[in-house]
């Protein structure tokens, strides 16, 4: 196990390296000169040269990459081009709202999607299954922000149950915090519920066709017993995969949801960075979310061996 773990961690290194390279290369795609952007329009040629030198832009591209990478590995992501603040502080500052939103979203998604998927699988081909599956296809065919606006229209403007937009940290009281987080969570979790329930359904159906399920049934186990004791456990691996990958995709979803609901989180930071062409911020945020993806993938692979003892390394 320890040997496998070591090899698996080692295998993620090239992926991380490629990610770092792509993220670094992204900046070079920009037609403008980063020094020019940083120095502003009124800079003299001498100032520009000084700026290029201080940014290391007069060195070779490989050298620049190595310098950048070694800084990143030490946790130094550079300084935001627009605000002048260190990226690390900016990210930490925005982490709270995004973390709250992502945590509530994935919790709701898992709590709703697993039972829904199991029920659909249990009633496979019947009306209830069809309804659930149609709902699932619809939920990921609608742009997320449309779901958000419809919810605002119905529940905030219409019924007045929830505030239209904004965010209150937990420190301002749990009531306000939960009220402000409800609609964004419902919005963001809709496509995740759709996707997770689809995968849960298909994996449970696959498992239900196995011989050991027939054995369990023929030894007189109740349908519920079959489902919970034998089917769900064996369907755990694909379910864990889809939940894990969903977690990795949360930040992407947060960009849209946070901008609809005006939540000052990392997703909004991405958007602000893009709109103000703050390249360091774009780089840092893409890098961080990709690293999250790789780490979660790693965690899922390790989790497999716990969920499914047949998988031995």
């Amino acid at each position: 196990m320890a040997k496998y773990l070591f090899r698996r961690v080692l295998a993620s290194v090239p992926v991380l390296f490629v990610v770092a390279f792509i993220v670094f290369a992204l900046l070079r795609l920009s037609p403008g000169d980063p020094a020019m952007i940083l120095a502003g329009d009124g800079a003299t040629p001498a100032q520009l040269d000084a700026m290029r030198h201080s940014m290391g832009l007069d060195r070779g591209i490989i050298e620049q990459f190595v310098i950048w990478l070694s800084k990143v590995l030490r946790g130094d992501f550079g300084v935001s081009l627009i605000t002048g603040l260190p990226m690390r502080d900016l990210v930490l500052d925005r982490l709270g709202p995004s973390f709250a939103l992502c945590l509530s979203t994935i919790t709701l998604a898992v709590v709703v999607a697993i039972p829904v998927g199991v029920v659909a699988a249990w009633r496979q081909g019947r009306a209830l299954d069809r309804i659930i599956m149609s709902g699932s296809v619809m939920a990921f065919s609608v742009p997320v922000f449309i779901i958000g606006y419809v919810l605002i229209l119905l529940l905030s403007r219409g019924l007045g149950w929830f505030p239209v937009q904004g965010y209150r940290p937990l420190s301002e009281g749990i009531g306000a915090f939960a009220l402000h987080l409800t609609l964004p969570t419902l919005t963001m979790s809709a496509p995740f519920i759709a996707v997770i329930s689809r995968i849960v359904r298909s994996s449970v159906i696959e498992v239900m066709g196995e011989d050991y399920i027939r054995t369990a049934r023929s030894k007189g186990l109740s349908e519920r017993g079959v489902l919970f004791k034998h089917a769900l456990g064996n369907a755990a691996v694909p379910i864990a995969t889809v939940v894990g990958l969903s977690i990795a995709l949360l930040l992407g979803g947060a960009v849209v949801t946070e901008s609809v609901f005006n939540i000052p989180g990392l997703g909004r930071l991405v958007l602000e960075a893009v709109l103000s062409r703050d390249f360091t911020a774009i780089q840092t945020l893409i890098l961080l979310s990709s690293v999250t993806y790789v780490v979660i993938n790693l965690a899922i692979d390790v989790l497999y061996s716990i969920l499914d003892p047949r998988i031995r390394y």
Partner: peptide, 18 residues
């Protein structure tokens, strides 16, 4: 694998803006 690790929407908005 590296490209897949980058969230699609972030990559797209970064590319367009750059």
């Amino acid at each position: 694998d590296g490209v897949m690790a980058i969230p699609g929407i972030l990559l797209a908005i970064a590319l367009v803006s750059l």
